[in-house]
Design a protein around this nucleic acid. Structure first.
Lengths: 225, 225
DNA sequence: GTCTATAGTGGGATAGAC
DNA sequence: GTCTATCCCACTATAGAC
């Protein structure tokens, strides 16, 4: 036996991984509702009891999917973030990157989305369990802001990444409901809304709009408190 | 004509109503997940099979709840709409009215909200089955706009009600996730966001913001097409 | 601590007799 | 239109093997 220091732990992690990967594969092949825990366990070569030993519920298998998606998104966004300087280009690049890496999962995302939408669910993007993925998402948008050539109100510079993440969540909501082939309408929505966001961010420093900017920032702080 | 011509139909409608009312009562008393179809059927004095004869699924029982809420909302909004002239006051009145009539259902709304969020669900506010409720909602906001003293760009005047309905859906989303007592944070969100909306609507006609207004309206039309 | 096997519960949904 | 009987599956419980 290799590894006597943490007995079984390595093996356990491998079993956990096998179950998670099998589940994800079956979800993609058959859809979420059509994939039973029995089938996942059988296909992974473990007992159903064992599957439940590692994952508290069928829903918990999706947490893996989130983390995977988040990692892939960061990787797919890297080229844009490394080269583009314009805020609008960086933002559009990151959003389109998400669209591309998420595309293969569109049909099955729809079927488990309901679970994520439930307030008490650990899969909700607003839940405590999701805070690592959420923080990673906000961090990505922080990179979008910080690397851009745009000059911003300092306070807005701090809070804008969170606002952009919420904007992204709105796009995801639209995407989930988007029946068009390859979700082209969502792509269109990005292409049409990014320039608006860009323009509004630029205008936020003007005398006319500064009061609104203040109100928005106050609101963000109120909601965080 | 109210008729003896369709025999049994009246009886059927009564059975349907009894089941729906029983279900709503039990949902409020015990919560959605904790109320089984067996319990609903038993309490209503019918068999479970019969309950399924009238309602294709447990979720379908909620459609009744939607309609009820929509009707109550219109009634609760009437006083404000009959008296207030300022756009901000009318909007805030209608939104707070919703908050009040929805309050008793907050805890159970959370548990079935997931169903409504599912794209393929007939309960989704964007579904074809929900279009009557959606249209009624938009009509309510049309009254908010049309009865107000504010002067608006004609095109915006046409599309603003739909935008306000979407804004309302956003507030509902927040409300569902709001754990504060009596959902006070949602009330705070309304109080802080309505002045912003009001200000932005006023500013939409200024030279500086007109391009953004155009873009927003183009976007709305794109999404409708 | 990791895993199997098995037996069982409860609830959404359905089939088919009447 | 209404019933009874049954299916299916998520999930639990448990007892024990390595």
């Amino acid at each position: 036996m290799p590894d006597a220091t943490i007995p079984g732990s390595a093996k356990g992690e491998r079993t956990r991984a096998v179950i998670a990967e099998t589940a994800l594969r079956l979800f993609r092949e058959r859809g979420y509702d059509e994939t039973t825990m029995r089938a996942i366990a059988a296909e992974a070569g473990v007992s159903t009891g064992n599957a439940y030993y590692y994952f508290a519920s069928k829903d918990h298998l999706i947490q893996r999917f989130y983390d995977q998606l988040q990692t892939d998104h960061a990787v797919a966004s890297a080229p844009t973030l490394a080269t583009a300087e314009s805020f609008a280009v960086r933002l559009a690049g990151v959003l389109h990157a998400w669209l591309e890496i998420a595309r293969p999962y569109h049909s099955f995302a729809g079927s488990f989305f309901k679970t994520a939408a439930e307030p008490t669910s650990p899969l909700s993007p607003f839940s405590a369990e999701s805070s690592p993925a959420r923080d990673a998402g906000i961090a990505l948008f922080r990179t979008v802001v910080q690397g851009s050539s745009a000059t911003l109100d300092p306070q807005l510079r701090d809070d804008l990444p969170e606002l952009l993440w919420i904007y992204h969540m709105g796009l995801v909501l639209f995407w989930v409901h988007d029946p068009s082939p390859d979700q082209r309408r969502t792509a269109g929505l990005i292409d049409r809304s990014v320039p608006m966001v860009d323009r509004i961010v630029r205008l936020s420093r003007t005398r006319l709009l500064r009061p609104v900017t203040r109100e928005v920032l106050d609101l963000v702080r109120y909601l965080r408190s």
